[in-house]
Design a protein around this nucleic acid. Structure first.
Lengths: 175, 175
DNA sequence: GCGGATGTAAAACGATCGTTTTCCAAAATC
DNA sequence: GATTTTGGAAAACGATCGTTTTACATCCGC
């Protein structure tokens, strides 16, 4: 693993587990096993490191969501929660911690959410066989977001509930 | 308004808009128009102030949710979003920023979520006329949580989508 | 009018923040 | 093999953090 990847992986772990603001750069250097000199050369600064972390998380998460049905979408989330645990959407957490004051971060958040929405729209289109299902797309997005959030305190059960709700909604939209 | 209420109101505003960790105590003293000496006598410390803020938010929010139907539940959330804006669930944000390291805060979060769940269960019971609707309760909770989260980047539309989804789910559970 | 609360303004506390710099060893390049 | 590049260890930077303390003003009950 190259240095940049190791740095971002360490940052993702710490930011996710302890929060962005509460995580000091020295703790990142320790986990990444590199000096702060190298860290700043690779990342540029803390805000840029957060943005890079979000970009990597987006890549990894979207890769998980390469599925062909709404049910598989929630199954994938269930896997994620079981493997990685549930601490809420990292993008919304970043947005909340910075209050939208950091443009780099807000841009990363909006980009992720737009990409996710497009993915859901594509899956919904596959499932219903046609276009014009914007309303169902929005509902699935909200359910997915809710499963991510509620899993923080309800665990995988929240995802299972969202999954069953989604199947009802898809069925209702089909008829 | 007494001093304690003024303090908590100022804290709620700042924490909500700029995040907990990023908000310094001096900024709270300025908005609350009181010296740090008085602040620390009233609140005890920053962690306790956060906990008090969450308790007050819980009180205010639960008061808004004194409704008798699932549809009214989401209508109330729509009002909240329009009036106060949408920056995500303050409780989950607090939990995410502290990584669960602060017991006072984690306890406040869990208490709020349990109370909210009970409220939803009561409303669902009214609506379906009977008990045993645990699955629907869980679905409504997830939808509500998702509307709160998605409203950050989709605005009131996210709440409207959740509202329509909820009506489908309630209808499906009735039959 | 006096003594005890009560609160403010402001300085000071040590700790930690993000970031830069200095010095030096190792490794790669010619 | 000399030289340039690279990165680590550690100190130092000014700023800001949460919190406490030191003064001084104001108001209350007596």
């Amino acid at each position: 693993m190259d240095q940049k990847a190791k740095l971002v992986a360490a940052a993702e772990r710490l930011f996710d587990r302890h929060g962005f603001t509460a995580t000091g750069m020295d703790r990142v250097t320790v986990l990444a096993s590199m000096s702060s000199r190298t860290l700043y050369k690779l990342a540029g600064g803390k805000t840029a490191l957060i943005a890079a972390t979000l970009a990597e998380r987006n890549r990894r998460f979207m890769q998980l969501l390469e599925v062909r049905s709404v049910d598989a979408l929630f199954a994938a989330l269930e896997d994620w929660v079981r493997v990685e645990g549930a601490r809420g959407c990292l993008f919304l957490r970043a947005q909340g911690e910075t209050g939208g004051d950091a443009p780099e971060i807000s841009a990363a958040v909006m980009a992720d959410k737009a990409a996710f929405r497009n993915r859901v729209a594509a899956i919904v289109a596959m499932e219903t066989g046609g276009a014009g299902e914007a309303a169902l797309t929005e509902q699935i997005v909200v359910l997915f977001e809710g499963a991510t959030a509620a899993a923080v305190y309800r665990g995988p059960d929240a995802v299972a509930a969202a999954r069953s709700a989604a199947s009802v909604l898809v069925e209702a939209a089909r008829s």
